[in-house]
Design a protein around this nucleic acid. Structure first.
Length: 107
DNA sequence: GCAATGACGCTCT
DNA sequence: CAGAGCGCCATTG
């Protein structure tokens, strides 16, 4: 992500900084990306994420610790499976335990 | 060049 | 404490 990085690229960079087995919320990424309060752009940016991107978009979830209903429901369940495969802890409600798998929390 | 769309979060009442 | 409404930015066609 050279200087010519677009705002989206910056978000991808932050997402790529998320450690494995951990998940970050849009607001968290937006803040780290330099756009606090603009979580929308983060979600939109991920929507435009190419398949050949090395960005772990599946580690990005909404502030509720749930997966957002993306235009492609196929990957919705895929994201959940991927997070579990990463070692992310889900609560009894089927949500991600941000208190445990949240980032940069992790305790 | 213009317009429309698009994975939410935050604040207020 | 809970629910509802609003805003914002960038990309793509």
């Amino acid at each position: 992500m050279p200087k010519g990085s677009s705002t989206y690229a910056r978000i991808y960079d932050v997402v790529g900084r998320i450690p494995p087995g951990r998940v970050a919320t849009y607001g968290q990424i937006a803040k780290l990306a330099g756009r606090p309060g603009h979580a929308r752009q983060v979600g939109y940016a991920l929507s435009a994420l190419p398949e050949d991107s090395d960005v772990p978009w599946h580690r990005v979830i909404n502030a509720k610790g749930e997966i957002s209903p993306r235009s492609f429901p196929d990957e919705n369940g895929e994201q959940e499976v991927r997070l579990k495969a990463e070692g992310v802890v889900f609560d009894e409600r089927g949500r991600v335990a941000l208190s445990q798998s949240g980032w940069p929390e992790g305790r």
